[in-house]
């Protein structure tokens, strides 16, 4: 048979040879358990195993994409059989939205310039202009009790761990693990996730922790008398260095004072459409701040630094 070598490799790797001829099942169990524990310990101690995971993810990524396929294509089919009328309506609506956004953008550019000038007066550097990459969500659910999603862009596109991820409405989460063809993104609502935020109204800084519910964040570290109101917008504070400053994160939903405890119970609703967005933006921070003024001032700055 011409496929004999392939079959041989396959049998050695995937299927046991007849076990009557091999070592006893006790020995096999011992080998398997020792190997598993070695892997568990090794992954905790070093990052050497990332390569192994990357290689194996080449095998598992196709399974993720075939799982995504039926849902993705059913949505596409629905789009394609939408009536002309509703498409026209949607088109009109999008046109209007674009007009509004464009006019806002005009003002934004002027404001941006003004901000840069003002910051130059204050001699503060200003980071602006993050680069983004659009990644598409795969409709898969890795573990029921975690809020981790998979997108179809990985290290081949330069994605790396701890990049911020946004959608059109706000902060979604951060890249948790980047694999060659895909990456895993932890949402801000995952119970193991925390994001440094500040209240847009008065600049009060705190930390928003995920609650495990897709529509709720918890602010556990604010005192009972903190200056916070329902409806306050929380933006990313830029502390911690992962999330760029100034993106909307959540809106304060409910404040429950706890007179007998040091901190109040405060809940917020994420701005991002965590369970609806299909396109996500992976953000690259621009490492160097945008130059503030003309070349001369820069040179002056350098001279100043040399002194």
């Amino acid at each position: 048979m011409d496929y004999l070598p392939i079959r041989f490799i396959f049998e050695v790797i995937v299927i046991n040879p007849l076990f009557a001829t091999g070592p006893s099942i006790n020995t096999r169990l011992l080998v398997a358990v020792v190997a598993s524990i070695a892997l568990l310990v090794a992954e905790r101690k070093s990052s050497q195993l990332d390569k192994l995971r990357s290689v194996l993810s080449m095998i598992t990524y196709p399974i993720q994409s075939i799982t995504d396929w039926p849902l993705h294509h059913s949505k596409e089919t629905v789009e394609s059989i939408k009536s002309l009328y509703s498409l026209k309506e949607e088109n009109e609506q999008l046109r209007q939205e674009q007009l509004i956004y464009k006019s806002q953008l005009l003002k934004y550019e002027a404001l941006e310039q003004e901000n840069i000038r003002l910051r130059a007066l204050l001699e503060k550097s200003f980071k602006l202009g993050e680069q983004v990459l659009v990644a598409e969500l795969l409709s898969v659910n890795l573990a029921p009790f975690e809020h981790v999603v998979v997108v179809d862009k990985g290290t081949r596109f330069g994605v790396h761990a701890q990049q911020a991820v946004l959608d059109a409405y706000g902060v979604v989460g951060q890249v948790y693990r980047a694999l060659p063809l895909s990456s895993e993104i932890m949402l801000i609502t995952d119970p193991g996730h925390a994001i440094p935020v500040q209240i847009n109204r008065n600049g009060l800084r705190t930390i928003a922790v995920g609650s495990g519910r897709i529509n709720r964040l918890i602010l556990p570290y604010l005192a009972n008398n903190a200056d916070i109101k329902e409806g306050d917008l929380l933006i990313s504070s830029g502390l911690g260095g992962i999330f760029p400053q100034g993106y909307p994160v959540a809106v304060v939903e409910k404040i429950i004072p706890q007179p007998n405890k040091p901190f109040a119970e405060i809940y917020a609703t994420p701005k991002a459409q965590l369970n609806r967005s299909r396109e996500l933006l992976i953000v690259w921070k621009s490492e160097a701040p945008i130059p503030l003024e003309t070349q001369e001032t820069e040179q002056a700055d350098e001279n100043h630094a040399e002194e």
Binding site: S36, A38, L39, L49, L52, R53, T60, Q64
Partner: peptide, 8 residues
Amino acid sequence: VLTGRMLG
């Protein structure tokens, strides 16, 4: 690898 658990 598929579900993003710890290897092993």
